[in-house]
């Protein structure tokens, strides 16, 4: 359906997006994950037609969109701070896209009612936008984007301004609606929890490139690169030096892993703890202990973070079984 080919875009003279290519298939929810300022929103703006790539193509169903202005693309976009029209009531906000398509009044009425129902806002038609809470406003924004049955739905950090419990509720709602409507969607966020919860596929944007494109569980199991691991908060990334074919020396000791590098090479390793199949063990001086949900988050020497079932005391030296993976 949607296809991006080799998009390039710079911001204030510096390259922002260097070579972006990906596709979104029918009914698929793709999550674009990256640090703030990495150009995620710019990609959405280019897909919408609000900004233009310096080179590259955006195609939908095989047709290049370069000559199509934003109002004829038939896409939907949900902003972080909603972008609701303050001078229109809820009904007219949701009806706006239908009116632009010159839909008959009867159809507008039934469609808006349907949308209000879908986002659980029945009876709010005549309310002013400013009377709503943040979560309600985001529901209206979602209903507004959905009302005219767009060919593609885009979310630009839609939950960024909401508090935690509201975030989870709305995230579930969005996921439900996307499954029900089968509209392909691109969901932009910097929050890895959101990404894992909603995505069929995650694209990791780093340094102007998509450095990883895979299903959430696959990425979790094997982040492959240090940047992905750091961005998604998977395990600990540590520096090491290959000393022989399958031995790597680090500040936590020597591990038996074969990363396919020649001796003397500087490499990065991913260390996770608390799993069953251990590939090594390390001695760790405990510097801080935090309670987190059903386990303890233990901070050790050098900033190493592991999760444990039982809390050690600060200053203890503990032995931890760890898994070690090579990173690119």
């Amino acid at each position: 359906m949607l296809e991006l080919r080799n998009l390039v875009k710079s911001y204030e003279g510096k390259p922002l997006l260097r070579d972006i290519s990906f596709t979104v298939a029918e009914g698929e929810t793709v999550c674009l994950l990256g640090a703030s300022g990495s150009g995620k929103s710019t990609i959405l703006k280019m897909i919408s037609g609000l900004e233009f790539p310096e080179s590259g193509h955006i195609l939908f169903n095989g047709i290049d969109l370069a000559q199509t202005p934003p109002h004829l693309r038939d896409f939907g976009l949900v902003f972080q701070d909603y972008g609701l029209f303050p001078h229109l009531d809820i009904f007219n906000n949701i009806a706006y896209g239908l009116k632009m398509r010159n839909a008959p009044v009867a159809k507008i009425n039934s469609r808006v009612a349907e949308m209000m129902d879908l986002v659980n806002l029945k009876g709010f038609e005549k309310r002013k936008v400013t009377d709503l809470s943040g979560g309600e406003q985001q529901r209206v924004a979602l209903a507004r984007a959905l009302a005219s049955q767009p060919r593609l739905l885009m979310f630009d950090e839609p939950l960024g301004a909401l508090d935690r419990s509201l975030k989870e509720d709305l995230l579930n709602e969005i996921r439900g609606i996307l499954h029900k409507t089968k509209i392909p969607a691109i969901y932009v966020t910097h929050d890895q929890e959101e990404a894992f919860a909603i995505a069929d596929r995650i694209l990791v944007l780093h340094d102007g490139l998509i450095i990883r494109n895979a299903a959430p569980d696959e990425i979790w199991k094997n982040p492959r690169s240090a940047a992905v691991a750091r961005l998604l908060g998977i395990g600990n990334v540590i520096e090491g030096e290959v000393i022989s074919v399958n031995k790597v020396k680090t500040e936590y000791g020597i591990f038996n892993v074969d990363c396919g590098h020649n001796p003397g090479a500087k490499i990065q390793l991913l260390i996770t703890a608390g799993k069953e199949k251990a590939e090594g063990e390390i001695q760790l001086t405990v510097e801080d202990v935090l309670f987190k949900q059903d386990q303890f988050l233990v901070k050790g020497r050098g900033g190493l973070i592991i999760h444990l079932k039982d809390a050690p005391r600060v200053g203890d030296v503990i032995t931890v079984q760890v898994q070690v993976k090579c990173l690119e």
């Binding site: 934003p70 706006y96 005219s148």
Partner: peptide
């Protein structure tokens, strides 16, 4: 004026 209002309207189909 919030430029996203203009963006929203255009994406929703307003010329």
């Amino acid at each position: 004026m919030d430029s996203r209002l203009e963006d929203s309207a255009r994406i929703l189909g307003a010329d």
